[in-house]
Amino acid sequence: MLVLARKVDESLMIGDDVEVKILSIDGDTVRIGVQAPRSVVILRGELYAQVAEENRSATGAASDDVDRLSSML
């Protein structure tokens, strides 16, 4: 992993069209601005893990329970 030290108002480039800028630092919270083309998805890293976990839970469904739910909709 590449590690860089940056100060407030400094930025870094990822490729030639994604700019990540440090806006402010307050205790352990860093505000970051990202400028990127509209086709680039920007998400909090923990969202992937959360969704993968929900997907895993979804695959555990029993067809009987799903049939019962279907009849309630």
Binding site: V51, E54, N55, A58, D65, V66, R68, L69
Partner: peptide, 18 residues
Amino acid sequence: LVLVVPGDPRNATVNLKA
């Protein structure tokens, strides 16, 4: 939407974020 269906289907949830 992906459904999570527990043993009691009344508690079923969907994932609106994915």
